[in-house]
């Protein structure tokens, strides 16, 4: 069931509960205390792989690089049977066509960053044009950035309208809204930006571009998950979550899954509603899977670097 989202900005969209950072950190520390062993660990590792947005977002990205990454997306480690594919490939708009072609007939989605990624410092027209271009090239998902400068200056209506306009330009593509939480400065603003993005039409909210430190953290992600939860309580509508940047070990990924499991529950424990934006996480998970299967610690040399 879908509820009608507000067509226009309302200041009440910004009203949310206060966030106590210390309390958030105490809660996230508890997630890291869960001991994930045996079958539950293997299940978690496979789930992690299936939730990865395998990402390359560099100035030196080329057709060759993107093609190799797409192959990796489909063939994480062929020596092991039964591995899932990753959820998506995440590239710049200029590589969407290449990726789409390389991934044809597979279930792996193509996500494109857009809206003058990563800073977002451009005009709305250019951002809309870039979004339309990426969608026309075949992108299944658009990862936009919010205008943090405007947000921090209190121009919430501008930020809201921009997201709503990009959402309209996405058509059938799902929209992920990057808050760039490392630039927002407080968990209260993370909460506020999350509410704004959700109200403006985000299908996913996403922590970071990966270009700014700190990127995804457990506390920031928890606050965003709780915003999603409150939206669900209120409307019955789901919104997806994508922590991105800085999640490079399977252990950390499992902490995120524990957090997801105990905050939003089973309905979000799939690639449709949860993603990891990461470039090196997949191989670390593969190392762990190999360790579980073979019983000895592994070397990175046995796993392809792309």
């Amino acid at each position: 069931m879908k509820t009608t989202r507000p067509a226009v900005f309302k200041p009440s969209l910004l009203a949310g509960p206060a966030i106590d950072q210390t309390g958030v950190e105490e809660r996230t520390a508890r997630f890291t205390k869960r001991s994930i062993k045996a079958a539950s660990k293997m299940q978690g590792l496979l789930m992690t792989l299936s939730m990865i947005d395998l990402t390359t977002l560099e100035g030196k990205d080329s057709v060759g690089k993107v093609e190799q990454l797409c192959y990796k997306a489909l063939h994480l480690h062929d020596a092991f049977e039964g591995l899932p594919t990753v959820a998506a490939i995440c590239v710049y708009p200029s590589h969407v066509r290449t990726a789409k072609k390389a991934l044809q007939d597979s279930l792996v989605k193509v996500a494109s960053v857009a809206t003058a990624f990563p800073a977002g410092q451009s005009s709305i027209d250019i951002k809309l044009a870039e979004t339309r271009f990426a969608v026309a090239e075949g992108a299944d998902e658009i990862d936009m950035v919010i205008s943090r400068g405007k947000f921090l200056a209190g121009e919430y209506e501008y930020v809201f309208d921009e997201i709503a306009a990009i959402k309209a330009a996405c058509g059938a593509a799902r929209l992920k809204v990057i808050l760039e939480t490392g630039e927002l400065g407080s968990l209260d603003d993370v909460r506020k930006a999350s509410q704004l993005a959700i109200a403006a039409g985000a299908d996913f909210i996403k922590t970071s571009t990966g270009k700014i430190q700190p990127a995804a953290t457990l506390p920031v992600t928890l606050v965003m998950l709780e915003t999603i939860r409150d939206h669900y309580y209120k409307t019955g509508c789901k919104v997806g979550m994508k922590p991105a940047g800085g999640i490079s070990t399977s252990k950390l990924a499992l902490h995120y899954l524990v957090m997801l499991n105990e905050t939003l529950g089973a309905d979000w424990m799939n690639p449709h509603w949860f993603r990891f934006g990461a470039s090196s996480l997949a191989n670390n998970v593969l190392l762990q899977i190999a360790k579980e299967k073979e019983g000895c610690y592994q070397s990175p040399n046995y796993f392809s670097v792309d």
Binding site: Q21, T22, G23, E25, L187
Partner: peptide, 13 residues
């Protein structure tokens, strides 16, 4: 009462 830790080492911000 909690102390918010923003900036400095050990902060999630």
């Amino acid at each position: 009462h909690p102390i918010q830790q923003i900036a400095g080492s050990g902060a999630s911000y």
